[in-house]
Design a protein around this nucleic acid. Structure first.
Length: 518
RNA sequence: CGCGGGGUGGAGCAGUCUGGUAGCUCAUCAGGCUCAUAACCUGAAGGUCAGCCGUUCAAAUCGGCUCCCCGCAACCA
């Protein structure tokens, strides 16, 4: 197998029928952290991070109508909200694809043509029950009484010509593929879920078109003037339309989708089936190799249940960022819950995390250290070769962990690398744990060394060696959190300075709980 | 028998695959320290690991049954 020295990570393209919420930001923060991390490991030029927006379909057509806009005007407005949020959250995407762009439309149409030509897509009849006022299709099993489950109005039976992708043809291949590639669908329980779904059910053909008279806001099929493309087919293609194209022989080429590239799709668990069933089959039928990993993360629960627009309990990420800061928000989402599991979101939990981890552990470590440098050395960082020096047992332990020039950069974050691998399910919270072990070790070491006594006893040499070591620890911690909390990493670098520290204010001033104490 | 996840000291979780001292964070209590953001360090109390039965020298961990909670069931991350 070719060595993977490139990394291509994607988020879903978000459906822009409403403003972004915490879930959108969760996926993008996770993807951003992985992208930043891989840029450090493989180099900037070998990492590509794609996000974007899904802009076609009925819901958007209707949302636009409600506001008296054309679909085009409507999506242009909502897209801005997404872009602004990503800027605000420091999301370092390389490319932002919109499904209304030419490059995308071209590739979708081309893909459809290829599949049509190969016979994987064929014309068929679609039968179902339709609620005209709601413009929604229902299966007979969903509406046994022939009444719309939503509005209770009578349904109308519809028969129309549509185009279908033959999924069943590839079903047994897909099962085998998933079985033979343990990293293909992660985490493990999702993989099992899909496997059991595929084993127990016969896949029915996927309808990939919609008649124009019902839906005009979509990509036209080149082989049928009266149809547009079904939104999910349209959407999934973004992963390849953004980074490559088909040649005259229907072969797909991409710098980021070659054998030397690791392709990772980050998604929420709700859209797992589209990504783990439809998408692989589409790729297979198009003669394109599989992504390496499709990872489905969990949901954030809010109070009593999952958050959703219909329940009206949506948390606006912008509010959280304004209130607690970008990196606090990033830290909380990545730290609170192992990636892949569901989590509970509450401001109380944010405050708890903030005070315990950011203010007390990290913030205070930096502040107390810098304060000593200021107090004992007038802010000048002691220029000691800390590695040539001998310390007591605790100091030696810290020094060993620093592990600095001897084994070069790579070993710096060995356990971070392994925590952030697909094999470990991109375990951000585990990575944080190992960083925080260093932080708490440093706090402990200060306690044991009692630098304030060294100062009183005028043991300047020991004191400066000690502080030199502490500065090195902090600087390393700063480098280690860089992918997770880029803004804070910058601040730390600034505070540490070259030869002289700039203490400034505490990075994370404690939040005192005024209102509620439970 | 639709599918899946879960029930571990007051709270939130890890540990279960590869049986063998029940671990972490927060909260509580006591002590220490004073460089620091009432922060930091040390120690303590607190759990029959949902229940029952079984396998085993040994079960939170394997098997069976029961009870309870929560998601999903095909366009909300």
């Amino acid at each position: 197998m070719a060595e993977k020295n490139k990394f291509y990570i994607t988020t879903p393209i978000y459906y822009v029928n409403a403003s972004p919420h915490i879930g959108h930001s969760y996926t993008n923060i996770a993807a951003d952290t992985l992208a930043r991390h891989m840029r450090r490991v493989l180099g900037k030029e070998n990492t590509w991070f794609l996000t974007g927006t899904d802009e076609h379909g009925q819901k958007i057509e209707r949302a636009a109508e409600k506001q008296g806009l054309t679909p085009g005007q409507f999506v242009d407005r909502v897209v801005v909200q997404f872009r602004d949020l990503w800027d605000k959250l420091n999301i370092s995407y390389n490319d932002f694809i919109r499904t209304t762009e030419d490059r995308h439309i071209k590739t979708v149409q081309r893909s459809l043509e290829i599949l049509y030509k190969n016979g994987d897509i064929y014309e068929g009849k679609y039968e179902g029950w339709y609620c005209t006022p709601d413009e929604t299709f229902w299966l007979e099993s969903q509406a046994p009484d022939k009444l719309c489950p939503d509005c209770r109005r009578p349904l109308e039976e519809i028969k129309e010509i549509n185009y279908f992708l033959n999924l069943q043809k590839y079903q047994s291949w897909l099962i085998e593929y998933i079985k033979n590639n343990p990293l293909f669908i992660r985490p493990e329980n999702r993989r099992n879920e899909i496997l059991s779904f595929l084993t127990l059910n016969k896949l029915s053909p996927l309808c990939i078109s919609r008649p124009k008279e019902r839906l005009s806001w979509g990509i036209p099929l080149s082989f049928s003037a009266s149809h547009v493309t079904y939104v999910w087919f349209d959407a999934l293609i973004n992963y390849i339309s953004a980074v490559g194209e088909f040649d005259a022989n229907d072969k797909y080429h991409s710098r980021w989708w070659g054998e030397d590239s690791r392709v990772v799709h980050l998604i929420g668990k709700d859209i797992l089936r589209h990504h783990a069933v439809y998408w692989p089959i589409m790729l297979k039928a198009l003669g394109i190799r599989m992504p390496d990993t499709i990872f489905a993360h969990g949901w954030w629960m809010l109070g009593e249940g999952k958050m959703s627009k219909s329940r009206g309990n949506v948390v606006n990420p912008l509010d959280m960022v304004d209130k607690y800061g970008i990196d606090t928000y990033r830290y909380f989402l990545l730290r609170e819950v192992p990636f892949g599991l569901d989590g509970n979101f509450s401001e109380d939990s944010i405050i708890k995390r903030f005070n315990a981890d950011l203010a007390n552990d990290l913030g205070n470590l930096i502040y107390r250290t810098l304060n000593m440098v200021e107090k004992y050395f007038q802010g000048k960082i002691p220029q000691h070769d800390i590695f040539s020096r001998r310390y007591d047992a605790a100091g030696e332990e810290i020094k060993n962990i620093l592990d600095f020039p001897a084994s070069q950069r790579a070993s710096f974050s060995r356990d971070i690398n392994s925590s952030l691998s697909a094999e470990s399910d991109f375990n951000f919270s585990l990575a944080f744990e190992s960083i925080w072990r260093r932080i708490s070790m440093a706090n402990k070491y200060i306690e044991e060394s009692k630098p304030w006594n060294l100062a009183k006893e005028n043991k300047i040499d020991e004191l400066s060696a000690f502080l030199g070591l502490m500065i090195e620890v902090i600087s390393q911690v700063g480098r280690q959190i860089e992918s997770f909390m880029p803004y804070t990493a910058d601040l730390i670098k600034e505070q540490l300075g070259e030869k002289e520290i700039k203490k400034g204010k505490p990075l994370f001033p404690r939040i005192e709980n005024k209102e509620t104490d439970t």
